[in-house]
Design a protein around this nucleic acid. Structure first.
Length: 276
DNA sequence: GGACAGGGTTACG
DNA sequence: CGTAACCCTGTC
């Protein structure tokens, strides 16, 4: 059915959880297919099918090596990370078990910046709608291997050139102003995206907060999902509730130095979906 | 059907 | 430095 299926075996890889974990907004379950997902990233369209013992990707080995192996963070051992959780930490033990299969994707920086500006005071289904609307309106039109049309995420240059009225058609609410200003700042090189890659987490965070609509929380999300600083630990309303309920003495950041953000992702997922 | 909150940030006082 | 205002939808 799918042309150029590339097959791998990988543990800790659950598309359902990754797609619902609120880190990416363009990965979706294929309609009517339980184990198949579609994804648009870095301008490419990908289908993924999960069978009992293998995962199939609609790409060549070359494309896999060049892009997707890195995108799915295949070089990291998530099991090992989960094993470092304190046995006495019942909450985090449950969270990593419940969220087993979650990975942190290495996504495109500009897409992450805009997506997480949209995410403020917003919920995941609506964020997805907004992002998709933005892509349909301003993203480059392309065709997948099935001959179906899809849209790449808009470039900064394209967004910087639109009017506020045009943006508002995407139902972004008050975030339209932020997005337009941020896109323009990036095009004007007031914040240099390539430069961000070479900065430390703390430096990148400060730099990102120059952008309109980017405060502490959004900057930390961008660092975690767009720059792959897995030490970034964004605290939103969910995580805030988790911390005050389960870590009244404070979260053990020292124990998880350098990768606390990955545990944050498990906790976030568990808090949203794990409650009975 | 109106009120409210949803992965916050900005711009005031 | 605390707090209201900001858009827009889905949900109650």
């Amino acid at each position: 059915m799918i042309i150029n299926m590339f097959k791998i075996q990988m543990k800790d890889f659950d598309l359902e959880k990754i797609s619902k974990s609120g880190q990416c907004f363009r990965m979706n379950k294929a309609v009517g297919e339980d184990n198949r997902y579609t994804l648009i990233a870095y301008g490419n369209y990908l289908e993924i099918e999960h069978t009992e013992d293998s995962i199939f990707f609609s790409c060549t080995q070359e494309e896999w090596d060049e892009l997707w192996v890195n995108y799915f963070d295949c070089g990291r051992d998530y099991e090992k990370i989960c094993e470092t959780v304190d046995k006495e930490d019942k909450y985090m033990k449950r969270a990593v078990e419940y969220g087993s299969g979650i990975r942190i994707l290495r996504q495109e920086i500009f897409e992450i910046i805009i997506s997480f500006i949209i995410s403020q005071q917003n919920n995941i289904p609506r964020i997805k709608k907004c992002v998709e609307s933005l892509c349909e309106s301003f993203g480059e039109e392309r065709y997948n291997f099935r001959g179906e049309r899809y849209y790449a995420f808009p470039t900064a240059k394209r967004l910087a050139g639109v009017t506020l009225e045009e943006l508002q058609n995407c139902n972004l609410g008050y975030r339209s102003r932020y997005i337009l200003k941020t896109a323009r700042m990036i095009v004007e090189n007031e914040v240099n995206l390539a430069g961000l890659m070479d900065m430390s987490y703390e430096e990148a965070k400060v730099e990102l907060m120059k952008l309109s609509g980017v405060g502490v929380k959004v900057a930390e999300c961008i660092c975690l999902f767009g720059l792959y600083h897995v030490e970034a630990f964004p605290i939103d309303t969910h995580i805030q509730a988790v911390l005050s309920e389960n870590y009244p003495e404070g979260f053990p950041f020292d124990r998880y130095e350098g990768y606390a953000g990955i545990l944050q992702q498990y906790a976030f997922y568990y808090d949203i979906y794990g409650k009975v």
